[in-house]
Amino acid sequence: MKPENVIEVENLSKQFGNFKAVDSISFELKKGEIFGFLGANGAGKTTAMKILIGISHPSSGKARVAGFDVYKETENIKKNIGYMSQKFALYDDLTVRENIMFFGGIYGLSRKIIKEKTKALEEELQLQDISNQLVGSLPLGWKQKLSFSVALLHQPKIVFLDEPTGGVDPITRRQFWEMIYKAADQGTTIFVTTHYMDEAEYCDRVSIMVNGRIEALDSPKKLKQQFQAESMNEVFLKLARG
């Protein structure tokens, strides 16, 4: 593994019975890169992501995440990544502060550090007034921004974001992306799936999965040139429709 590579995937496959959910995919991610992982529903994105975050075993192929093997060192992988999904983010019945304490605790941060981080976070997101409110009572946009910050709490090398901005209003969506840019600028690698094609354009590089295979992988600009398309949406439609 080259030192600057945070994720290395080589011919990774996952088979369920006769069905190849992930079919020999390969790619490398560098430190601080924003990587868009696109594909139609059922193209194999979720399966691939589950392998990379260490909760599913691949059938064959090689993959290292944050320097650790996805077969043997899943515990170390989990310590070094952050994860946020649209379905599960934070506990609605805990307050903002309790959530931060809890997730900080899971990753073994000391009380002192958690306290400092909580304060910094509250300032950054301007949460001082609502830090004792239940997360369930916050607007969706706030929740998503907060859960992204919580996913970054233990300074992971990579953050996996599974459709983080679904249903969020356009302004908050952009604030969210500004947070992503900032994290990437500080050296965190961002691995993101989304159904918003304009968001795909925000990424440094994008892969598009069709039927378990990665059919295209490059910067949005080059992909548009390659497929003679105006937008990523067009690229996607051309590829996924075959």
């Binding site: 840019y181 354009e201 937008s231």
Partner: peptide, 23 residues
């Protein structure tokens, strides 16, 4: 650099609105 572009545009005294939009 997208990140630095947004940051500097937001610091620009005459800016009215700054929103990332695709590339």
């Amino acid at each position: 650099s997208m990140f630095h572009l947004i940051k500097n545009l937001k610091d620009y005294p005459f800016q009215y609105s700054v929103f990332p939009f695709g590339e």
